[in-house]
Simulated scan of single mutants.
Amino acid sequence: MAKMSGARKFLRLLGWTFGGALVLIVLVMLLFRFVNPPTSAFMLGYQLEYPHKSLAYDWVSMSEISPWMPLAVVASEDQRFPYHAGVDFEAIRQALSEYRAGEGLRGASTITQQTAKNLFLWNGRSFVRKAIEAVLALGLDGLWPKKRVLEVYLNIAEFGPGIYGVEAASQAFFGKPARHLSEYQAARLAAVLPNPKVLSAASPSSYVLEREAWIRGQMAQLGLGHLRDL
């Protein structure tokens, strides 16, 4: 009987802990809908790993970012961004279907998932982390307007070692503020996002240049009107 009572107490404590953590996460999400994040999990991770290196991070509002930049990341990373609910289940089904057909397993992360990961989580490929990322992405999509998701993503994404956000990237690689980025420069920055620690916007490899050209083609097909109603 005592053992049963102890088990109930443990389960109750576990439930309260989980519920408290969930409430805290929702409150933080609501806060960051209106307040710009001062840092992110990925930035903190970089500072812990490289305590003696500087980190570039300069927040700018969407109105201070060239309209080519959000179009470039949507064209590159998540063309269904305006339409899905934070997780693109159709893209996941297609990726799994291709994997079963013998093709490599490709990522199907949305911009919302990447925002959740960069802001709250750690880097890695475990199913546990991906599951948490998906749940957080659904929460972000429910609590934030699409435009806010895109604004936060552009400001916390890593564009190079220690370079976070489009303003810091634009200054570092092109010597200009993000509001003056051209279509080509926006595509170049978007081209390095899959692996900014290896791919360089300053010294682009042939792969980066090919990817940049592909992104420009996708941008032309989508057009700036693709994001007008966000």
Results as ranks from 00 to 15, higher is better:
residue 2 A to K: 12
residue 3 K to R: 00
residue 7 A to H: 06
residue 7 A to W: 09
residue 7 A to S: 10
residue 10 F to C: 08
residue 10 F to V: 12
residue 10 F to M: 13
residue 17 T to M: 13
residue 17 T to G: 14
residue 22 L to M: 14
residue 23 V to I: 15
residue 23 V to L: 15
residue 27 L to Q: 01
residue 29 M to V: 15
residue 31 L to Q: 07
residue 32 F to K: 00
residue 33 R to D: 03
residue 36 N to L: 00
residue 38 P to E: 03
residue 40 S to Q: 03
residue 43 M to N: 03
residue 44 L to Q: 05
residue 44 L to P: 00
residue 48 L to W: 10
residue 50 Y to V: 11
residue 51 P to I: 14
residue 53 K to C: 01
residue 53 K to Y: 03
residue 53 K to D: 04
residue 57 Y to S: 02
residue 61 S to R: 10
residue 62 M to G: 03
residue 62 M to Y: 09
residue 64 E to V: 13
residue 79 Q to G: 05
residue 81 F to M: 09
residue 83 Y to P: 02
residue 83 Y to I: 12
residue 85 A to N: 11
residue 90 E to S: 06
residue 95 A to R: 00
residue 99 Y to N: 11
residue 100 R to C: 00
residue 103 E to R: 00
residue 109 S to K: 12
residue 111 I to N: 05
residue 111 I to H: 06
residue 114 Q to W: 15
residue 115 T to G: 08
residue 120 F to I: 13
residue 120 F to P: 07
residue 120 F to C: 09
residue 120 F to L: 10
residue 123 N to K: 13
residue 128 V to L: 11
residue 130 K to E: 03
residue 146 K to A: 12
residue 149 V to L: 13
residue 151 E to P: 06
residue 153 Y to P: 06
residue 154 L to S: 03
residue 155 N to Q: 07
residue 155 N to K: 05
residue 155 N to H: 07
residue 156 I to R: 01
residue 158 E to R: 07
residue 163 I to M: 13
residue 168 A to E: 02
residue 173 F to S: 04
residue 174 F to I: 13
residue 175 G to D: 12
residue 175 G to P: 09
residue 175 G to Y: 08
residue 180 H to L: 04
residue 184 Y to Q: 10
residue 185 Q to A: 02
residue 187 A to R: 04
residue 187 A to S: 10
residue 189 L to N: 04
residue 195 N to D: 15
residue 197 K to L: 09
residue 200 S to C: 00
residue 201 A to C: 11
residue 202 A to M: 13
residue 208 V to N: 05
residue 209 L to V: 15
residue 210 E to N: 13
residue 211 R to Y: 07
residue 213 A to R: 06
residue 215 I to C: 02
residue 216 R to W: 02
residue 216 R to G: 06
residue 218 Q to M: 01
residue 218 Q to C: 02
residue 223 G to L: 03
residue 225 G to R: 12
residue 229 D to A: 07
residue 229 D to G: 06
residue 229 D to E: 12
